[in-house]
């Protein structure tokens, strides 16, 4: 069995499930979870490809991505918490300022 195909399949499904989170769930934290899933899917594919080719750049990139994702999770979650602290709901129903 070709492990490459398998990994790509897993990566793809994880990406799509993360996308489903983004599109279908209303809560912001759920959307952040979805984003994390998508990033991980990408990372999985990246690392697998890097190992197969023996390419160190891929591994380095995956590491940097993990770091950036950490920063992003911090800021995103903190924004959600701030909104919750102000007494409003962190759901997309009420976040309508981009409409029009």
């Amino acid at each position: 069995m070709d492990s490459g195909l398998l990994v790509w399949g897993v990566s793809g499904v994880l990406f799509l499930v993360g996308g489903a989170f983004l599109v279908l769930r209303r809560q912001l934290i759920a959307m952040i979870i979805g984003v994390e899933l998508m990033i991980n899917a990408a990372n999985l594919a990246l690392v697998h490809a890097a190992v197969r080719r023996g390419d160190a750049e891929g591994l380095a990139a995956a590491l940097l991505i993990i770091a950036a994702a950490a920063a992003e999770a911090v800021v995103g979650l903190w924004l959600v918490l701030r909104r919750l602290r102000d007494g409003e709901t962190a759901e997309t129903d009420s976040l309508r300022e981009l409409s029009g």
């Binding site: 934290i29 952040i32 979870i33 994390e36 991980n40 993990i66 770091a67 994702a69 950490a70 999770a73 911090v74 979650l77 959600v80 918490l81």
Partner: peptide, 13 residues
């Protein structure tokens, strides 16, 4: 990092 910090952050949020 990911599982140990970020996921925990989410849970904490």
């Amino acid at each position: 990092v990911y599982a140990g910090a970020i996921a925990v952050l989410v849970v904490m949020a």
